[in-house]
Design a protein around this nucleic acid. Structure first.
Lengths: 201, 201
DNA sequence: CCGGAACCGTGACAAACGTCACGGGGATGT
DNA sequence: ACATCCCCGTGACGTTTGTCACGGTTCCGG
C-alpha cells in the first residue's frame, strides 16, 4: 500500500487528483495540503511514502518544498506535477532531489503508474521534456541579470528597479542590456517574457 | 441522471475531474475533450445535459465555446471552471449564456453540487467574484486601445505594432498613451499586464 | 442640426531607454 | 602572477517612448 500526499494550491484539482488516485487499490491518499510551506510538516506527520507536489503554490515553491522533504524525511520520494513543462523547472526539480517530473498534459491513466514507479525508487521523467532540457542547456543569465529581469517584470521604470535592488541606474541599464542581448529579446519586457518562459527567473 | 461533458486542456486535470464526478451516483461523464473547438460537436453527439468548460484551451476560448453550445444545443447548460478569477472573465461568460462560474480554488466537494444546481436551471456564481465584478465595472478601454495593448503584449516595438495593425506609428503611440493613462500603468508593459489581469484583453 | 465620442493621422518635445567604452574591485582557476 | 569572469559604477550617445496640441473623418443621440 502506497501512502500518498497531494499538494496543489487549487482545491478543485487537489480534490480531483485525490479522487482519481484513491480509486487505485494499492494507493491511499493520507494527506492534502494547499501551501508549499505546509508540505514538510504534513509529510512527517502523515508518514507518506510519496509526495505529489505542484510547483506553483503560495508560501513556498514546490521545488523548494521538495528539497525540504528530502532533508527532513529522506524516506519519502517526491513526484513533481506541474502545468508548465519548462526545462528550467525540470533541472531545478532534479537538483532538489525529485524522483519524478510529470506535466499536467499527460493522460490521467498514466499518473498512477508514475506514482508506483516513484514509490519503487525508479525515476519518472517526461521524455520530450528531458530532450528539451538537454538541448537547451543552462540559463545564460548571471545571478544579477536574473534579479534585474525579475524586478523588471513588475513593470517599473529603471529608477524603480535600481531602488528596489539598491543599485545605480547605470548598473541596472547595463545588466538589462546584457540580458536583452543574451535572451534575444527586443526590449526588457520581451527579455523578461522570454526568460520567464524558459524558467530562468 | 445528469449527463456531463468535461472540457479542459490538461489531460490530467480532465481525467481527475471525471474521476471525481463519476463517483457521484447521479452524475455520469459522457464525454471528454481537450480543445475548445471540439466542444460543440461533442455536446450534440453525446447529448450532454451539462458542459463543464475550462476557459484556457487551444483552438477556441472556453467562453466562445459556451456561446457555440448555447447556439447549437440550447438544452445543454454550461458551467465554466477556470483558474483565474478575473472579473472580466465572469462578465464575458455570463454574456455568453453560461449558467455558472466556478474558480478552481473552491473545495472539491462543492463541485458536484454546482453541477446539480446548473442542471436544475439555477445559476451558480462565486459570491466574492461577483462582488468584485460589480465593483470594478466595465473595461475603460476603447476597442482600438484594446487591440494595440494586446499587440504590445508580445513585446515588439511601436513600429512592429503599427505594422501588425496597419496603423501609423503616431496613432499607435496615442492609443498606447491613452491606455496607459486609463489603466494607471507606468509604461505599456505595465498597462498590458494590468489590462490582462482584469480580463480586458 | 449640433455636440460628443471614437478613430486616424501629423508634428514636436522631454523623458526614458538601450548601447557602448571605460575603470575598479573581488573571486576563481591555471 | 596572470588571465578570466562577474559585479558595480560613470559618462556619453543615439534611439525609442510617452505626452501634448492640433486637424480631420465618421457615427450616434439629443
Amino acid at each position: 500500500m502506497i501512502r500518498l500526499l497531494i499538494a496543489d494550491d487549487q482545491a478543485l484539482v487537489r480534490g480531483a487528483l485525490a479522487a482519481l488516485l484513491d480509486l487505485e487499490p494499492d494507493i491511499e491518499v493520507v494527506a492534502q495540503v494547499g501551501r508549499g510551506d505546509e508540505v514538510a510538516d504534513a509529510v512527517t506527520s502523515s508518514g507518506a511514502d510519496v509526495a505529489l507536489l505542484d510547483i506553483e503554490m503560495p508560501g513556498m515553491d514546490g521545488i523548494d518544498a521538495c528539497a525540504e522533504v528530502r532533508d527532513h524525511a529522506p524516506g519519502c520520494r517526491v513526484l513533481i506535477v506541474t502545468t508548465f513543462g519548462r526545462p528550467g523547472y525540470l533541472k531545478r526539480a532534479m537538483r532538489a532531489g525529485a524522483s519524478g517530473f510529470v506535466v499536467k498534459d499527460t493522460p490521467a491513466t498514466q499518473l498512477a503508474d508514475a506514482v508506483r514507479r516513484v514509490a519503487q525508487g525508479l525515476r519518472v521523467v517526461d521524455p520530450v521534456l528531458a530532450a528539451e532540457s538537454l538541448a537547451q542547456g543552462d540559463s545564460p543569465l548571471t545571478e544579477r541579470e536574473t534579479d534585474v529581469l525579475a524586478a523588471a517584470q513588475t513593470g517599473g521604470s529603471i529608477a524603480d528597479i535600481a531602488g528596489m535592488l539598491h543599485l545605480s541606474e547605470g548598473t541596472v541599464r547595463n545588466h538589462l542590456s546584457s540580458a536583452i542581448g543574451k535572451t534575444g529579446g527586443r526590449n526588457r519586457a520581451d527579455a523578461a517574457r522570454i526568460a520567464d518562459e524558459n524558467g530562468w527567473l
